[in-house]
């Protein structure tokens, strides 16, 4: 199909120009929401790095007399400001401990699946024919095998650990990226500039990595960010089946799952970790949208400054 009408961007529009780059910082500070998202993510990453060394002991100490200690009270010190969980551990510190695990799971699981899916999708879309067909079939197969089965198989081969969770979630999400990357590649492959590069004798490798991959990347990144929350929660369902993390290790999904039994009696046990997951996923989405806006004005989204036609072009 001819791409121009359906997908109107051209390579020129998608590539970064010096002008857009100079505007980046301005666009960033112009939106308080983007700043807030960045600050939140930076904070979470900082906590993830520092918490295990600083508060592990206190975070995991059970004091049954503080079971379901109510939130927003400081009698037990600031660490109980978000209340106590079902074993009387401070929820605030548990969240801090969970940050590291959740970040590791989200980063590596999403990283593995998106990179592999991205790479295979590029190859499949670029070469087409039987390569495309067989890679797509493999993706379909992966997509249809129940992730729980895969998880159990991994459990029977390895001991339960965070590593298993990453492998299982990583493998099962590959097809999503693969298909998206392939679809875009098929479309971009037909564009004039690719033809030009080909006629100038560029190698397949060069065309794929230099001409096509950068254009596919923003979509993959957007998708990956949208998957973050899903992956954090999916990890919890594996844990519940005895396949994932083991206590005293903790991640946010596990905290939500543990607290769901007490939704009626102690709402805060499940709600605080849930809110943290939503906030983190939301921040990641906002930042990724912003990045996309910076790179590609036609995709101009929400947080980009409203273009001012008269003055916008002036340096």
């Amino acid at each position: 199909m001819k791409g121009e009408d359906v997908m109107p961007q051209s390579s020129g529009q998608q590539r970064l120009s010096w002008f857009q780059r100079s505007e980046r910082w301005q666009m960033f500070t112009a939106s308080p929401m983007v700043v807030a998202s960045a600050v939140w993510l930076a904070f979470i990453v900082l906590v993830a790095v520092l918490a295990p060394a600083l508060v592990a002991e206190r975070a995991n100490f059970q004091n049954l007399s503080l079971r379901f200690f109510p939130p927003f009270q400081i009698e037990q010190g600031i660490e109980f400001i978000l209340g106590g969980d079902s074993l009387g551990r401070p929820i605030l510190l548990q969240l801090a401990m969970g940050a590291q695990t959740s970040m590791i799971i989200a980063f590596f699981a999403v990283g593995i699946s998106s990179l592999i899916g991205y790479a295979i999708g590029l190859v499949a879309g670029y070469f087409g024919g039987w390569v495309d067909n067989s890679l797509l079939r493999i993706a379909d197969i992966l997509h249809t095998v129940p992730s729980m089965l895969l998880a159990l198989v991994v459990l029977f081969i390895l001991e339960p650990s965070i590593f298993n969770v990453i492998i299982v979630l990583g493998i099962t999400r590959i097809p999503v990226y693969l298909r998206t990357a392939r679809a875009q590649t098929v479309e971009i492959r037909e564009r004039t500039f690719v033809e030009v590069a080909r006629s100038m004798g560029a190698s397949h490798w060069r065309i794929m990595t230099r001409e096509i991959a950068p254009l596919v990347f923003p979509t993959i990144r957007t998708l990956a960010v949208l998957e973050v929350a899903m992956v954090i929660l999916a990890a919890a369902s594996l844990t519940f089946l005895g396949i994932g993390l083991q206590r005293p290790d903790v991640d946010w999904g596990m905290m939500v799952a543990d607290g769901k039994t007490y939704l009626k009696t102690a709402w805060f046990v499940a709600v605080f970790p849930g809110v943290v997951i939503v906030l983190t996923a939301l921040s990641a989405s906002i930042l990724s949208n912003w990045l996309r806006a910076v790179e590609d004005p036609t995709q101009n989204i929400l947080f980009a400054r409203k273009p001012k036609p008269s003055r916008g072009k002036a340096p």
Partner: peptide, 11 residues
Amino acid sequence: TLATGSIPHFW
């Protein structure tokens, strides 16, 4: 819509 997308289902 971004927020609803990240709400845990069972919740």
